[in-house]
Design a protein around this nucleic acid. Structure first.
Lengths: 113, 113
DNA sequence: GTCAATATATAGAAGAGCGAGGTATAGGCT
DNA sequence: AGCCTATACCTCGCTCTTCTATATATTGAC
C-alpha cells in the first residue's frame, strides 16, 4: 500500500527537525529523511509538498527562493520562532507518547506464548 | 484538549496488544490503555468502537457476547491466528519506525542552541 | 426515582497522506 | 539536434483514521 507507513502526524515533526538543522529546500528534505533513516522514511512528493504548505500556512516555516549549489532555483525553508517552539513541544510530546506505547507493548502477556 | 493525540494507525496496534494478553471487551480495553500508560493514552469511544469493528471485519479479532464480572452483557474480543500474525508484523514495524524517527531526531543540529 | 458508571453503537466532519498526474531546467550522451 | 535522467516544484481527488456528538440500555447506589 504505502511506502513508509509513517504514523500520521509524525511527518510534520520530522520536517521541522530537518529544517531546524539548517534551511533547506523541499526536495532535499526528502533526501535527508531517506538517508538519515537509512531508507526507512521515504516521503512521496504528494505528501511532502502539501505538508510544507501546511506548515508555512500555520506560520511555522518561512520560504525564500534561492539558488542551490547546482545553480537551480529552489524554495529554502527556515524555522520561525513559532516553528521552533512548536518543534520543541511536538518533540517532547513524541517522547511522551512512544514511552506510553512502550509501556503498553511491554505489558505482561499472561501466557501468550 | 486533554486527549491523547496518538499517532494515527497506532491505535490498532495497542488494541491488538491488549486483546493478545487475554480476551476483553471494548470498554475494558480503553480502561487498560489508560491505566497501563498512566493516563497518557485516553481513547474516546468514537475512536475505539469503529477500530474494533474494523479489526473484526479484517478478520483479526472475533467477538463473543459474555457476562462481565459485574453481571452485564459485553462483547469479548479475542485474537484470531491472523490477528496474532498481524500484531507481530505491526509490532516489528512500529519498532523499526520509532528507531528511524529516533535517528532523525538525533541528527546533529549544527548550532541550533 | 434519579444519578453515575458500565457498555455498546453510529453519523458527520476534519485532516493527513498518497497516487497520479503536470511543469520546468540542467547536464550528459549520442 | 534529440533524448534521457535527475533535480525541483505543484495540485487534484481519493482513501483512511480519528474526533465530536449523540443515542441506547443496564446496574448499583443514594
Amino acid at each position: 500500500m504505502q511506502k513508509t507507513d509513517l504514523p500520521q502526524g509524525t511527518l510534520d515533526l520530522l520536517i521541522l527537525k530537518v529544517v531546524a538543522v539548517e534551511p533547506v529546500h523541499g526536495y532535499a528534505i526528502a533526501q535527508r529523511l531517506d538517508q538519515v533513516s537509512r531508507g526507512v522514511v521515504q516521503v512521496p512528493e504528494g505528501s511532502l509538498y502539501p505538508a510544507l504548505h501546511r506548515l508555512e500556512n500555520r506560520g511555522l516555516l518561512t520560504a525564500d527562493w534561492k539558488q542551490t549549489e547546482s545553480g537551480r532555483e529552489a524554495k529554502f525553508y527556515s524555522l520561525t520562532r513559532k516553528g521552533r517552539k512548536q518543534f520543541e513541544a511536538d518533540s517532547a510530546n513524541w517522547a511522551r507518547l512512544i514511552q506510553a506505547v512502550g509501556l503498553i507493548l511491554g505489558m505482561a502477556d499472561g501466557g501468550t506464548r
